[in-house]
Design a protein around this nucleic acid. Structure first.
Length: 696
DNA sequence: AGTAGACTTTTTTTT
DNA sequence: AAAGTCTACT
């Protein structure tokens, strides 16, 4: 098979790039995944690079999985490749090098909630009860520090507040170590530290990775960028692909600046641009371009397509969120006469918006699938099982131990925990070891039965760790009595979820022959449900726009296009409108054939009904790409009309009796235009009353 | 020790 | 509006 087949000249150049640093600036739908995949295949097949010498970093596990699948037929053995997200690669390195870092090999990985409860515990211990210092505030401070690869000792605190945040950062890191646990940030930070402090290990990896490739480079944070730079050897074979217009994770520490720094850090950087879009119709692309054009902080590029114009983008303003949801349902029903339901996607800004849409689809009998949101693995019954797994593998993990020590009830209450904590403090032991010690000393007296039972179950299960994941979980549920507990309570939903969890384990087992429960647990820690989403299973997909990144659908609905919601009020308050606009651009460019934009005039927020105004992004879409859906025949009907021609939008050519001809550069709010007149220069005009006319 | 009811917080986005 | 957390009662 020809690796260059079907590629345009720029794409070929990117695949064939000889050596040294390369940046591929790839617009939405310009075939970047294809190019990245072919590049990896080309390196192995034509240049004879061993797969294990290639480090390819993707943005999601799903993208990694797809790439492996695509490469497998091209290469006989794709197995040696280092391919995955930054976090999964970091984890792989940490598991291999845990010794050098003084970590237990079976350390736990804490998610959001566990991190927060550990922070709460730290604050309790430090006796901090300050309105200004909430656990969430501490968590986001620590996360921001880690995103920028800043250790506590690197900081010169700016004031009293930061001093306290900083000391909590220290205490928290210490607590993590005591639990033999790491958080997400540490999956990047600890490898970075390892390489910095351990030249021998670093040079081993530098020698190993002959080629480093990074996808979605605009969304890497500083720590990730430093890790990448550190790993490059003298050949400096760094191959990255990204799009500054699609940077939507600034709040997570992502720095578009990494793309700019690249030119500073690598003066011989070669840049290739991919501007031909193979995904969307000309209309969809034009509409998306007209929105992103309003951003000032961008490299500037304009995507083009050979696909036909296609149908207009539909804009609908409905009275309420329920009507909006019903309208989406009706429209899908209507279009589904000619299309499979798997071709539809509904996007929203916040997960909370999914409920109304879900109800409407349910009523219309349209099968759907919600991606993200309250994730399956975050349900209490599933988290209990996961906590058991962690304690079994890593008894030092006191957070997980506390979660399950009395689940199902074993008569272990506050008093027993207090006794255990006291011993743990006294002898600096983990809670688990403190229990063992307490049993020896007989401090539990009448309460001893419960802890004896718990410890017995844990050690019994520790003997079964070599079982395949599914069998192990079955034994765990049996030994602990977890499943029986839910069955006795008549909690059918939870029982169903546990069964679904078991089948997920089975599936994992089949996909990863020879794996054990450790591998399954690692998988659970890093995987999100977008990763296991199979497109085109006859269901409408519902997700946030963030989750939609990297996906494409023939028909896309973007709902809740309202001020305060999208752009989100908090983003506006923090001056991040440009990132919201990029998010809007990302959403619009997911659509291949049809795009629907909608807003509601009234919406329930926090249980309160709010009057909403249409999003400024709707004003920014060039009018000639739009048609308006009008509700004029009651809830069941409506008609399409052209968008009011008198309305102005960015890019329009205009004429003024006094200033002459000019071009609309931008808008401020609903009715203030910024116009550049050929004769009179830049003017701000309010329309109406300004006597401005459109030309052409 | 366990539970019911009051009270609080949540909604920005996620590896 | 709903889920999670806390408190007081049994």
């Amino acid at each position: 098979m020809d690796l260059l087949e079907g590629l345009n000249p720029a794409q070929r150049e990117a695949v064939l790039h000889p050596s040294g640093p390369l940046l591929v600036l790839a617009g939405a739908g310009s075939g970047k995944t294809l190019v990245l995949t072919r590049r990896v295949a080309y390196l192995v097949k034509e240049r004879g690079v061993p797969p294990s010498s290639i480090l390819a970093i993707t943005f999601t596990n799903k993208a990694a999985g797809e790439m492996k699948e695509r490469i497998r037929p091209i290469l006989s053995g794709a197995d040696g490749l280092w391919i995955g997200t930054f976090h999964s690669i970091g984890l792989r390195i940490l598991r291999m090098e845990s010794n050098a870092l003084g970590l237990k090999r079976d350390f736990s990985i804490y998610d959001e909630r566990e991190r927060l409860s550990l922070i709460r515990e730290c604050m309790r211990r430090e006796g901090i009860e300050d309105e200004l210092i909430t656990p969430e505030r501490v968590a986001s401070y620590i996360e921001a520090m880690k995103n920028d690869a800043i250790a506590p000792e690197d900081v010169e605190p700016s004031g009293h507040l930061e001093e306290r945040l900083l000391s909590l950062y220290r205490v928290y890191e210490d607590a993590l170590r005591k639990n033999s646990a790491v958080d997400f940030g540490n999956l990047i930070l600890l490898p970075l530290r390892l390489f910095r402090e351990n030249p021998a290990i670093l040079s081993r990896y530098r020698e190993l990775f002959q080629h480093v490739l990074v996808d979605e480079f605009q969304d890497t944070n500083l720590a990730q960028y430093q890790l990448i730079r550190l790993l490059l050897n003298g050949e400096r074979n760094l191959w990255v692909v990204g799009d500054d217009d699609q940077s939507i994770y600034g709040w997570r520490g992502a720095r578009v600046r990494n793309i700019l720094d690249l030119e500073r850090d690598f003066p011989d950087l070669r840049v290739i641009r991919l501007e031909e879009n193979y995904r969307s119709t000309g209309t969809i692309l034009g509409a998306a371009n007209s929105v992103i054009r309003n951003n000032t902080m961008r490299r500037g590029k304009t995507l083009w397509t050979r696909q036909g114009e296609g149908e207009k983008v539909t804009l609908a303003i409905l009275e309420s969120e329920e009507e909006e949801a019903n309208w989406v349902g009706r429209t899908i029903l209507d279009l589904s006469k000619e299309r499979d339901l798997g071709e539809f996607a509904i996007f929203y800004r916040t997960n909370a918006q999914s409920r109304v849409l879900e109800e409407a689809l349910l009523r219309s009998g349209i099968p759907y699938e919600i991606l993200g949101g309250t994730r399956f693995y975050e349900r209490a019954e599933i988290k209990d099982i996961i906590a058991y797994l962690r304690v079994i593998l890593n008894p030092e993990d006191s957070q997980s131990l506390l979660r399950v020590i009395n689940q199902p009830p074993r008569g272990i209450g506050r008093r027993t925990i207090e006794l255990t904590r006291a011993i743990a403090e006294r002898d600096s032991l983990s809670l688990f070891d403190a229990i063992l010690k307490g049993m020896e000393e007989g401090v539990f007296r009448g309460r001893g039965e419960g802890v004896r039972l718990f410890v017995g179950q844990i050690s019994q299960l520790q003997g079964l760790l070599c079982l395949p994941p599914f069998d192990f979980l079955e034994r765990l549920l049996h030994v602990t009595g977890l499943l029986a507990m839910w069955e006795d309570k008549g909690e059918e939903g939870r029982v169903e979820n546990i069964k679904e969890f078991l089948s997920a384990a089975k599936e994992f087992e089949e996909d990863n022959p020879g794996s054990d429960i450790r591998d399954f647990l690692d998988h659970l820690s890093l995987v999100s449900d977008i990763d296991s989403y199979d497109q085109g299973r006859g269901k409408v997909a519902l997700m946030t726009i963030h989750s939609a990144k990297g996906l494409e659908f023939p028909v896309v609905f973007m709902t809740g296009m309202e001020e305060g919601l999208f752009p989100h009020g908090k983003a506006v308050a923090e001056g991040d409108v440009e990132e919201e606009r990029r998010l809007c651009y990302v959403g619009m460019t997911r659509a291949k054939e049809r795009l629907f934009l909608s807003a509601a005039r009234r919406r329930r927020i926090f249980g309160k009904i709010m009057e909403q105004r249409p999003s400024r992004f709707l004003d920014e879409v060039d009018r000639h790409y739009l048609r308006l859906y009008r509700v004029d025949a009651g809830p069941e009907g409506g008609s399409f009309g052209p968008v009011d021609d008198r309305a102005f939008s960015t890019g329009d050519l205009v004429e003024h009796p006094a200033f002459g001809r000019g071009k609309v550069l931008g808008m401020k709010g609903r009715d203030v235009l910024i116009v550049s007149f050929h004769g009179a220069g830049l003017k701000k005009l309010k329309v109406p009353p300004a006597p401005l006319k459109k030309v052409g």
